[in-house]
Structure formats: C-alpha cells, structure tokens
C-alpha cells in the first residue's frame, strides 16, 4: 500500500469525496465543490469557444480570407447582450433569437422525418413466425395508447390502449434493468481511482 504523493491526485480524491458527501447531507464541502464546478465549467466553455471558435474564425476567415459576412453575423450576435442592458434596447435581442429559431426549425421540418420513416418501413416486415406476429400486435396496441381523439368511445381503442400502456411499461422496465449495469460501472471507475491511484491498494 503506497498512498499517492502527487498533489493533483490528492485534490482529485478530495473532490471525489466532496461529491459523495452529498449522499449523506448537503454540506459545506459539497457546496464548495458545487460552486467551483459551476464556475469552472462556465469559464472553461468561455475559453473553449474563444480559442476553439471565435479567434480562429476571425483570424482565418475574416482577416486572411476577407469573408466579411462574418462581421454581419457577429454584430447580430452582439445584440444578445442587449437583453441585459438597461433602457429600451432589450427588444433588439429578438433579432438573433429569431435567426436561431428559424435555422433550427428549418432543420426540424426538413430532416426530422427521415429516421422515423426508416422505423415505419421496418415495421412493415413479413409476418413469418410467432415473434413477428407478437411484435406486430404489440406495436399496434402500444400505438393505440397515443390516440388522443380518435375512437374515444370505442371499446377496441380503449382496451387496446390499456394493453398498449402495459407494453410501454415492459419497454421501460427493460431499459431500466439494462441501465443499472452502466451506472454501477461508473461507480466502479471512481472506486478503482480511489483505491488504486490514491490509496495505492492493489485491486483485483
């Protein structure tokens, strides 16, 4: 057993313990860690966008290649800050917001149907064996659960919908059961850091 002498490993270990202390109770160590992470991540992304995006774009595209439309979009982006300025300029922030919303909407409207179409096509498989038939029936009932207006009074839809909800619960149960091992792996990773890297206990 050789406890680590690296100060960075010690800080890492203390950070790890501070987070786990939340499981007992909200406490000053946790609070220090929490405020630290909120601050550091915000600053990290400022530095990340600054060096990884903003400056390279300005250098290569605006200065070297003279693509001046970036300046137009840059000025538009600056309007976001109007939101926090005093006085009557706050509404100016709507311009970049509108561009952003339009751009996102365009993608939703053009691209989002593609993957569902593949799912839809795959649902039309030949019913060759028992499992295919069961899959087909379960899919239809599960689909019925999401009928909000059609066949509100029809007993077929209401019974089908009820069975459908059970099918959904089976699907959710499957996802839940599967996820557990992934989540436990996450703790095992931290645990092997604490035991092997920090305390120097040989594991396994």
């Amino acid at each position: 057993m050789h406890v680590s002498t690296d100060p960075q490993v010690w800080i890492m270990a203390l950070c790890t313990l501070a987070v786990y202390s939340y499981l007992y109770k909200e406490n000053p160590f946790w609070r220090l860690a929490e405020y630290a992470l909120v601050a550091l991540y915000t600053s990290y992304s400022v530095a990340y966008y600054w060096h990884g995006y903003l400056i390279p774009r300005i250098k290569t595209y605006v200065i070297e290649r003279h693509q001046y439309y970036y300046i137009v979009f840059g000025l538009l982006g600056l309007l976001y800050y109007c939101r926090y300025l005093p006085g009557k300029v706050q509404w100016l922030a709507r311009y970049p917001i509108a561009v952003e919303v339009g751009w996102g909407l365009g993608a939703v409207i053009a691209v989002s149907p593609r993957s569902p179409m593949q799912q839809l096509a795959d649902s039309m498989r030949p019913l060759k064996n028992v499992n295919d038939v069961i899959f087909f029936l379960l899919l239809l009932t599960a689909f019925m659960y999401f009928f909000f207006t059609v066949g509100k009074k029809s007993p077929v839809v209401s019974v089908g919908g009820k069975i459908g909800r059970l099918v959904l619960m089976v699907a959710l149960g499957t996802a839940f059961g599967n996820t557990i091992q992934g989540r436990i792996s996450l703790f095992l990773q931290r645990l092997s850091f604490l035991l092997a890297d920090w305390l120097g206990i040989p594991i396994g």
């Binding site: 839809l120 649902s123 019913l127 239809l140």
Partner: peptide, 8 residues
C-alpha cells in the same frame, strides 16, 4: 403499418 405488413 397494417397494409405494409400484410403486403410484405
């Protein structure tokens, strides 16, 4: 879906 499965 129903029509497609029957056709398939």
């Amino acid at each position: 879906i129903i029509a497609g499965a029957i056709l398939a």
